[in-house]
């Protein structure tokens, strides 16, 4: 794959990749670095990329892996166990914007549920694309989305009552 061809295929994905990276790392500079790192990795593998059916899904998978590695190194990821429901609700009581409440609740979800939710709701990928990007079966995706949505609903309603 030549330079121009590579750019034509992969550069248009950068807004989506940046948004996904930002949601993981919550830092603009780090998110930019993650995206650049993905492009370096893709460039180094460009001779193999011709055989990949869905370059966008492949890019998202690479980015997710890089972000998870980064979070492991920096130990910034908030696990579901670390934040109890009560604490999560207490934290979001200050938020006035419902979208930010949802974001805050999402931070307490396990990584797979959270990423599945982002990709489905905010990046509007199809189920098949998400399954490919996250390496999940259709059933696992359905379960992840269901759990994420139910947890959000439960905590959102608690927040509303509080």
């Amino acid at each position: 794959m030549k330079e121009d061809e590579f750019k034509n295929i992969f550069i248009p994905y950068h807004p989506k990749l940046y948004r996904i990276a930002f949601r993981f790392v919550q830092d603009s500079d780090v998110a930019s670095d993650m995206v650049q790192e993905v492009y370096i990795k893709l460039w180094s593998q460009r001779n193999k990329l011709g055989s990949i059916k869905n370059p966008e899904a492949y890019s998202v998978t690479c980015l997710r892996n890089l972000c998870l590695d980064h979070l492991k190194k920096t130990k910034k990821e908030i696990s579901f166990e670390q934040l109890s429901d009560k604490k999560a609700i207490e934290e979001v009581q200050d938020w006035s914007d419902e979208t930010k409440v949802i974001q805050k609740i999402l931070e307490t979800l396990p990584e797979q549920q959270r990423t599945a939710f982002w990709l489905k709701h905010w990046e509007e990928y199809s189920n098949e694309e998400i399954e490919e990007q996250l390496g999940m079966s259709a059933i696992n995706l359905r379960v992840s989305l269901s759990r994420a949505r139910k947890t959000i609903k439960e905590q959102f309603l608690k927040w509303r009552k509080g």
């Binding site: 950068h14 948004r19 949601r23 419902e98 709701h121 905010w122």
Partner: peptide, 13 residues
């Protein structure tokens, strides 16, 4: 709740 769920987060590139 449903509006919040379908509301996209605002991340500028």
């Amino acid at each position: 709740l449903m509006q919040a769920l379908f509301q996209k987060d605002d991340i500028s590139i």
